[in-house]
Design a protein around this nucleic acid. Structure first.
Length: 292
DNA sequence: CCTGCCGCCTGCGCGC
DNA sequence: TGCGCGCAGGCGGCAG
């Protein structure tokens, strides 16, 4: 589910809550969440108990935690289609004594202790269990940034790359441009929502190939604008599956022009927005403004 | 080597 | 009303 703006919104809240705090208890409630940890839940608990978080970072849709003990592998979190990281019980409604949707899908839990003795709970919640936790040693990515080895194969994300670099990655290829946008090895952080919104903003058909310099530059600018606007809005929440670390919804759904807007008029030309099958999902676009 | 497709899951909404 | 099907913010592995 979550794309770069959602994952970054979550990371900011989690970083504020757990940086320079020590994990004193780890619990795993579903085996699938640790399917990429050799040794499973026991190994995760053994590795992390007593460790102090020194930083919380992100590339694309991956979040990871670094530790004060430099000999320790880093803790990588991917949220998949429906993952959430919730801090404490801030989303718990004391009036109704109930949790928001998702509370029933808590897959893992980390309890932190601060130097002042206060405690903080971090819950990993994931309805569909496509998300996962992993331990991974640091390595140099192709751009020389230090990242967990597990994600060394993905490209820098759309907000890390310069406009020139992003444009060059999107120009010239014989592949359909939307496949390039979704390919985390080309540029990371973009998913189906923001791919469609950026292509609309740049007036480019999702199936276009061999983008020239002009269209590639336009698309690079559109990608950056859409992602940064969505980040400023706290991400896109069109149901209960995306919430930030404090349990709050983002409001970029109000700014979506094509994603989920099929049947509605294009704000530019009035033509009806369409939704067509594309690479196992759907593309949403204006058939006139984004004609092939 | 590169590209595209399938499987992995659960829950929801729509149509019959 | 109920049920079955299709669909959903993603990724990795594998076949061609």
């Amino acid at each position: 589910m979550p794309e770069l703006p959602e994952v970054e919104s979550i990371r900011v809240g989690v970083a504020a809550a757990v940086t320079d705090k020590t994990i004193f208890e780890v619990q795993v409630f579903h085996p699938r969440v640790v399917r990429r940890v050799p040794g499973g839940a026991d190994a995760l608990v053994e590795a992390l108990s007593g460790q102090r978080v020194s930083a919380t970072r992100r590339r694309g849709k991956f979040i990871w935690f670094e530790f004060a003990d430099a000999a320790l592998p880093w803790l990588v979190v991917h949220l998949g289609m429906s993952g959430q990281l919730l801090v404490d019980d801030v989303a718990f409604d004391n009036a109704t004594r109930s949790y928001p949707a998702g509370r029933g899908h808590e897959r893992a839990r980390f309890d932190f202790l601060a130097d002042d003795g206060s405690r903080t709970r971090l819950r990993f919640i994931d309805q569909r269990t496509f998300g996962f936790l992993a331990l991974s040693v640091p390595t140099r990515a192709a751009d020389s940034r230090l990242v967990p080895q597990l994600l060394a194969h993905i490209a820098p994300d759309a907000l890390e790359l310069s406009l020139e670099n992003l444009a060059s990655r999107l120009s010239g290829s014989a592949r359909e441009v939307k496949r390039l946008l979704l390919d985390q090895g080309v540029v990371s952080g973009i998913g189906n929502i923001y791919a469609d919104e950026a292509l609309y903003a740049a007036r480019i058909n999702p199936s276009a190939r061999h983008l020239g310099v002009g269209r590639a530059n336009r698309l690079a600018v559109a990608v950056r604008d859409v992602l940064s606007s969505a980040l400023a809005a706290g991400g896109t929440s069109f149901d209960a599956l995306y919430r930030n670390a404090s349990g709050e919804a983002g409001y970029f759904d109000r700014s979506l022009v094509v994603y989920g807007r099929e049947g509605q008029p294009c704000p530019t030309c009035g033509t009806v927005i369409v939704s067509v099958p594309f690479a196992g999902r759907h593309s949403h676009f204006c058939p006139r403004c984004q004609a092939r």
